[in-house]
């Protein structure tokens, strides 16, 4: 069992130093600094986000998605056929994203995240590994404004083809662990076949990566069985946002490996470690399936200091569990 995160990490904190990215973006928007200057700040803040995960002892980390101006949909902005429109609420959060607008056929032009991945990889010590997070094709389709395709099916499948090329490029650059985020998938169980077909397109060109699909913010009660048939290695399950997901893992054995969203990444209240252990023990049918423990979703919903505390909690809990298993 290893500790991990789901995706993003706070870009700013409360100290002056921790707000340099905020100042940098403002200065760049006012044309007071150059793009290269802003990139330098983004690099430094990315290294900081990586360092926080390493310091906490997280095993499988991300680059914190420091460059992502919008949650989840950001990489799609670099696809052909996409422009950006007004703000929309990001699921049920008091957080907004600029909605991608599909103006013409969606296509992949060039690597979007490969540079970020390579940069991050240089900052990761041997004791940890790095995963890359991509938006899932179905969720991208759902969160976009479709002004081109007559059917959402065609849009989702074109997103999938573009993401497949991106995933392949990332694997070529050395990525070993790829994650597709599909928070929209459980919300539209009637579209499961489409989502599955799209995910299959994304994963087909991948030769040796470990592939996870993460769902968060909602219940998997209507999609859990179908999710078992996806051509992936593991499933990320949010145990905080839906009590039904807890019951599911008590009742059913998962055919896929599991990454469990155990601590609430949307509330500052700190969980009790003993409660978390008891919760984990209740998943008798799936104990050998649990590969990762992580927060319920990205940590950017939390203030910086709370995010660090949650990292410490997850990493500490995982280490304690691993060492007690070894002893036992």
């Amino acid at each position: 069992m290893k500790s991990s995160v789901v995706g993003n990490f706070p870009k700013v904190g409360d100290s002056h130093e921790q707000q340099k990215l905020r100042r940098g973006i403002e200065a760049y928007q006012q044309q007071k600094i150059l793009k290269a200057d802003l990139q330098e700040i983004q690099d430094a803040v990315t290294q900081q986000a990586i360092q926080e995960q390493i310091n906490a002892g997280i095993d499988l980390i991300t680059d914190g998605q420091i460059r992502w101006d919008d949650p989840l949909v950001w990489p799609a902005r670099k696809f052909k056929g996409i422009s950006v429109n007004g703000l929309l609420r990001f699921f049920d959060n008091n957080v907004y994203y600029r909605q991608p607008v599909v103006e013409s056929a969606v296509g992949w032009i060039e690597p979007v995240l490969v540079h970020d991945f390579q940069f991050a990889l240089r900052s990761v010590p041997k004791t940890a590994s790095l995963k890359v997070v991509l938006p899932g094709p179905y969720t991208l389709g759902r969160l976009s404004k479709n002004q081109h395709y007559s059917k959402i099916e065609d849009l989702v499948l074109d997103f999938a083809r573009a993401l497949a090329k991106e995933a392949k490029a990332l694997e070529g650059a050395g990525a070993k662990f790829l994650q597709f985020d599909e928070p929209s998938l459980p919300l539209y169980p009637e579209d499961f076949k489409l989502a599955a077909k799209a995910i299959e397109i994304c994963t087909t060109p991948l030769a040796h990566s470990t592939i996870y699909v993460y769902t968060y913010f909602s219940s998997l009660s209507k999609t859990f069985d179908d999710l078992q048939n996806l051509p992936i290695h593991g499933l990320g399950v949010d145990l905080v946002s839906s009590a039904e997901n807890i019951q599911l893992l008590r009742d059913k054995r998962s055919a896929k490996d599991l990454a469990l969203g155990l601590v609430d990444a949307r509330n500052t209240k700190m969980e009790n470690e003993e409660d978390l252990r008891n919760l984990l023990e209740s998943f008798e049918k799936n104990l050998d399936r649990i590969q990762f423990l992580n927060p319920s979703c990205g940590l950017e919903f939390l203030p910086y200091n709370s995010a660090v505390k949650k990292l410490n909690l997850i990493a500490g809990l995982t280490k304690d569990l691993v060492s007690s298993t070894k002893k036992g």
Binding site: P10, K11, V12, G13, D14, Q19, R22, I25, E26, Q29, D69, D70, L87, N94, V95, Y96, Y97, R98, T268, E300, F301, L302, P303, Y304, N305, S306
Partner: peptide
């Protein structure tokens, strides 16, 4: 009042706790 959290783009705010 919490530390800063992001609202969208480069906009941040503090939340009640």
């Amino acid at each position: 009042i919490s530390g800063l959290v992001r609202s969208y783009g480069n906009r941040y705010y503090r939340k009640p706790v």
